[in-house]
Design a protein around this nucleic acid. Structure first.
Ligand code: MN
Ligand code: MN
Ligand code: MN
Ligand code: MN
Lengths: 156, 156
DNA sequence: ACCCAAATGTAGCCAAGGCTACGAAACCAT
DNA sequence: ATGGTTTCGTAGCCTTGGCTACATTTGGGT
């Protein structure tokens, strides 16, 4: 008798179906992948802006402390951010934001604060709101952000 | 005269300050890094569960379409998920969720739906809600999720 | 049975984020 | 000015997510 082969589950035609209805979902999902580097960039420029405001300059060690990574990781990432035009820096000097980088930082900080305030308004504890906002901030579209602001204005 | 050295910005003591106040923030941020693989895992198990429900089985090609990546990427990721105990699969066969994987899938799907419904309730358009939820779902803590649900019940 | 198209796997490449270890530069006191 | 501490850079390693090109296995049709 022929070996049983076939998996142990099926019981339905399967296959051939998913081809069109899923493509919409695919775009939502595939996006989320490559965007990792962009999220990192956002956290960096925001941290750099904060450090400059708070201490006058952004140094590698300070960024490493703020971001919770080693100075090596910061150093290499700064190289990438410079290549992408968000910062400029010279060896052993502190780091500066370019116009583009500063603009991104402003945008990120704004989103960060809106998300945090929104979660707080919903009754989430400060610590949790801060933690969740740190991740959520990178995924709120302008439309959703507007909805958050509208809610805040209505429940101020 | 001694070369000018020093960067072109400062004007403040700088340094030495950020060391304690930043550590809280660091934990929020450092988290967001390594968690990338976990987010991917969540999207995979959720997609696998959906495919099994919809078509009876989850095959590599279907996953590739759903997730918007090539079958090669899916294949390798499945290997990792198997190593981590979320799925089991044999060469050329369809993919199954383990108990652990199924549990994670249920949790993710639940979060996904709650976030989507919440955004919809806030007035965000369906398409935008779907897209944003796909990213936000991975960053919502139990506490925040509870706040979302509370809002939904109050504004059902 | 056989053949071919589709599905899956493999090899090998890249970018990115993380790390440790170690060397070089800068800075601060003495 | 010199030396020690701190900061920064480099080398080299790992993991992961993506890809193309190519090999292999399945499975359906003739
Ligand atoms: Mn963040
Ligand atoms: Mn932030
Ligand atoms: Mn997702
Ligand atoms: Mn999802």
């Amino acid at each position: 008798m022929p070996a049983v082969r076939r998996s142990t589950a099926p019981s339905q035609p399967a296959s051939s179906a998913p081809t069109r209805s899923t493509s919409a979902q695919a775009s939502s999902l595939s996006k989320a992948r490559q965007d990792n580097a962009r999220e990192i960039a956002e956290d960096y420029v925001e941290a750099i802006a904060d450090l400059i405001t708070l201490t006058g300059e952004a140094r590698v060690v300070d960024l490493a402390r703020t971001l919770g990574v080693t100075h090596v990781t910061v150093s290499r990432t700064i190289t990438r951010l410079q290549r992408q035009g968000f910062v400029r820096s010279e060896p052993y000097r502190s780091i500066f934001l370019t116009e583009s980088g500063a603009a991104l930082a402003r945008d990120c900080k704004s989103r960060h604060e809106t998300v945090t305030a929104f979660l707080r308004a919903l009754g989430v504890r400060r610590e949790t709101a801060e933690r969740d906002a740190e991740g959520i901030e990178h995924h709120v579209s302008d439309e959703t952000l507007a909805a958050f602001l509208k809610f805040l204005h209505a429940n101020g």
